[in-house]
Design a protein around this nucleic acid. Structure first.
Lengths: 261, 261
DNA sequence: ATCTGGCATATTGTATACCAACCATGATTA
DNA sequence: TAATCATGGTTGGTATACAATATGCCAGAT
């Protein structure tokens, strides 16, 4: 269901009473710490409730197996706020963010629904991802260090010699890691951010798309070819291999992903 | 108790059709993923204050010449809400959206600041845009109709024979329209949405990047070559030309856009 | 004159109250 | 019986009140 029981955690008890002469205590505490140690303390992460709610909701949504059933999955603002122990406002702001990222749909006076991507949308996302990652591959051939590229090769050490079949689950993780690393090595923040969102969406259908063993075998060969092209600094070839690899997945989805729609 | 006098706001029908003459109007489509149905319905009435505030704020920000001065540009939530005649809530929601799109930065307890992109960020955006548009070019060679491609050629009818110099302003508009049309003809909603946001950012520095006459001349030649490749359905060549055209702009910015940073 | 510390102020983050639109349900009527 | 309408409850949108904190100013000490 939508909301599992949450332990009645006490999030930020907000004292209605304002202890008047305070403020100096906290300040002095911090000050002494800083004075003795110029090394900056890791800024005490104070993510707002909005960010926390966002992260929690996103995790919850991504963890759902939303394509198993076709029934609408509705989220209840008030209930979620209650479960989180916060008010509706940060939940709403988190929801608005998730809507702009395509994870939920806010229907006025109807409810908030988890979005199921259609087959067409999935293919469009993979195509866009192909565009971004192939550009990342170009950039890697021009700016990445040999060591960085070597790191890509090391990822697949476990699977040398055709042990892919035996460890499909693990391979699936490495597979994702590989593609994320490609993007990251581009050192292009825009590419990284855009691709990350697409990736998150694709992880949600991963369970069903990466299942086939034949694809895993072909996949690892593709990856090796890509790595070789990157090592050889063959810009155009690396781009092409990455693009075709991704578009191959798009084609696969187009033909076999009947569970979509 | 103190029931506020709510003005009888009847949120208008908000006509979907915008008879804007030349592009340059982003339509501020936040509707997100609802569409994806083949025939897109003209619904999309966005009655909420949030959407209106979002559109108004985005237009205002884009219209600013934020790179002329280096002084921080701060936006005041309460003042804006007052000016719009609404409460802070929808303004805040609009601001959160604009932050996730990279237009403003919300600093807790400090204020809301309009974001100036650094030169590096601009180059990264152009690079990402190159990736998206070159993929769009590929798709066009595979799926667009001849008539659609012909429309691209008609855009430049005005400038046949080297009248570009005389009408730099007009050319600048057509230039933008050209690239947006390329993206749009891909019929890939993800590409379209992602590129639109990048485009909006780039329009904000357009005043300074498209100034040179030499670039305009070279630009129109590039465009013609692109159109020819599309007409010939040369997938790889179209992709390459579009990509190089965009990366050329990135290179230009890298070398001459000293006003950034 | 300079520095320190506390307070007023400004500004966002969060909670809560209220409202209008929507839905389901069941009574009512032709 | 079937269609219509009244009605109450649910839900997201909006307004507003309250809390938390960053900043600047000024008094007082050195």
């Amino acid at each position: 269901m939508i909301s599992r029981n949450r332990p009645p955690r006490r999030v930020g008890v907000r004292t209605r009473n304002r202890p008047s002469p305070v403020g100096a205590q906290v300040a002095s505490n911090v000050a002494s710490n800083v004075a003795s140690q110029p090394a900056l303390d890791p800024i005490d992460a104070s993510p707002s409730f909005k960010h926390k709610a966002y992260a929690a909701l996103k995790n919850a949504i991504v963890a759902m197996d939303i394509y198993r059933s076709r029934a609408d999955i509705r989220l209840d603002e008030r209930k979620l706020a209650q479960d989180f122990g916060i008010s509706r406002t940060p939940v709403r702001e988190a929801m608005a963010q998730l809507e702009s990222e395509g994870f939920v749909r806010l229907v006025p006076r109807r409810g908030i629904y988890v979005v199921r991507k259609t087959k067409r949308e999935v293919i469009e996302m993979i195509t866009a991802w192909a565009a971004l990652e192939s550009m990342a591959a170009r950039l890697i051939t021009q700016t990445a260090s040999a060591e960085e590229i070597a790191g890509l090769r090391r990822m697949f050490a476990t699977f040398e010699g055709g042990h892919v079949q035996a460890k499909l689950d693990e391979y699936s993780d490495v597979n994702i890691e590989f593609h994320q690393t490609i993007i990251r090595l581009s050192r292009n923040r825009v590419l990284i951010d855009l691709a990350e969102n697409l990736f998150t969406h694709m992880r949600m259908i991963r369970r069903k798309t990466i299942g086939e063993k034949d694809r895993a075998d072909r996949s690892i060969r593709d990856h090796m070819n890509i790595i070789e092209a990157l090592e050889a600094r063959s810009t155009d070839r690396a781009e092409q291999l990455v693009r075709d690899h991704a578009l191959g997945l798009a084609d696969h989805v187009a033909r076999f992903a009947d569970y979509l729609d």
